[in-house]
Amino acid sequence: MARYFTEEHEWVDVEGDTATVGITDYAQEQLGDVVFVEVPQAGADLTKGGDAAVVESVKAASDVYSPIAGTVVEGNAALEGEPELVNSSPEADGWFFKLTIADKGELEGLMDAAAYRAFCDDL
């Protein structure tokens, strides 16, 4: 399984034609205490860079964009009752949504773990 990262601090796990998307540990750290997450409904068509989810922290509301285009298979229902999973387990249990990848070519523009770490170090 390959994991990719975006400059908007999302991670993407790819398994076959399915991608799982969440926000990185760096992102949750910046957001602070998450109190509400709105994930997309199954069947929603997302565009690359388009609005996909909203995360509300004590501080502010932030948009989460879809790193690639595709059709949503599932939103993470656990975040409704436990939005704090985004803080405690951002890169595992706190995932946001899964989608069927429309164009695998879009993955090529994303970073791998080493490149993302270097990107964050420069911020």
Partner: peptide, 8 residues
């Protein structure tokens, strides 16, 4: 991810 509220 991007901030929708920022101090200017």
């Amino acid at each position: 991810m991007s901030k929708t509220e920022t101090e200017v």
